[in-house]
Design a protein around this nucleic acid. Structure first.
Lengths: 185, 185
DNA sequence: GGCGTTTGCCAACACGTGTTGGCCTACACT
DNA sequence: AGTGTAGGCCAACACGTGTTGGCAAACGCC
């Protein structure tokens, strides 16, 4: 695959358009026709390149969270680093909505939910510190808070949460995350 | 409307089936035909009783959160009462999945998201205490944590969160909620 | 320059959807 | 018992969907 430059270009154009549409409309409402129109090509090309809508979705949702190894940091800094990284992943241009796609469709699509659990298990549960008995539970509690913020801020768009800037969010969330990481259970 | 008993029965049968289908499949995947089949009647009846799929959805998602007026309680008890109430609303049989419907479809359906913001604004934002300047922000922060838990527990079904029982959840979440209600911003 | 492969578009299919109108049936009321 | 009204089903429509096959054009290579 990927011989010529031209094919790679449209391939990426499709993927970008797909992520934007999936992020904006969710899996079911995002139509192949709309994605193709955004990419400026014919719907049948999407099929040729990605096989099916499911195949395109799988490609669009293939993401690396790049969770930093906070285990090496002093305990009192871990929470802040995590919150900052998480927010920057969501705000970042380069992610181009992958996380929105993942979360949004994990909610309506069981396959996507399974993928999300896998992402969590492999990329989050293991990197929060030394593998102790209670590590995964702590990581999951952190996830409830961070995903809750993402949900309210980027999907439901609760005005009060949207209005907060990064620093205010960090100040509010970091103590919570810190307590989940180090406090009693 | 609602003259005979028979019509009221099938009306409720439709609504129950609709809630279950909407909760299980989301707005787009839940088809009127499937809902009608579950209710044991003809698809056209759904139209006659609720006008359209949107109308049915609006009826299915019409919910009262019954948020207790925690403003009257001593501050240190408010968080625990809120968390307990929230969890019991989700676990409760009587809700028959209304909250799942609301959250799940608020994510793919902009109308549902708007409704969710409205529910939050009218039923949550006002009942958490005396109407101060920063009240709504505090309520919204509480929402991020509680909705995050609901998301991970009832929709994504993160194993670590599903495994916790009510008491463990309350013990973990109440301090967070308490800090959002009373701590510094 | 000629030729095979790739890139792309067009038109169409098969299917499932929300929605509608017409018809039969059973109830309620006098 | 007779009759009007409401409850219910059937068949169909119009539409948008994912997907497919065939055909024109552009490219890379000899």
């Amino acid at each position: 695959m990927a011989f010529t430059q031209r094919s790679e270009d449209t391939r990426n154009a499709i993927l970008t358009a797909a992520r934007r549409r999936f992020a904006a409309d969710g899996y079911e409402r995002a139509t192949i026709r709309a994605i193709a129109a955004d990419a400026g090509i014919d719907p049948s090309m999407v099929m040729r390149y990605y096989g099916s809508k499911d195949g395109l979705f799988a490609a669009a949702v293939d993401v690396d969270l790049e969770v930093p190894a906070v285990g090496d940091l002093p305990p009192e800094r871990r929470a802040e680093v995590l919150v900052r990284h998480f927010l920057s992943m969501w705000e970042g241009e380069r992610s181009s909505g992958v996380l929105t796609v993942l979360l949004r469709s994990a909610i309506t699509n069981e396959a996507a939910a399974e993928r999300m659990r896998a992402v969590f298990a492999t990329q989050v549960g293991t990197t929060l510190g030394p593998p102790t008995e209670e590590g995964p539970v702590r990581a999951a509690l952190v996830a409830t808070q961070l995903l809750g913020v993402a949900l309210c801020r980027y999907i439901l768009r609760l005005p009060q949460i949207v209005a907060l800037d990064t620093e205010e969010l960090v100040a509010s969330l970091a103590p919570t995350v810190e307590r989940y990481l180090t406090g009693p259970l």
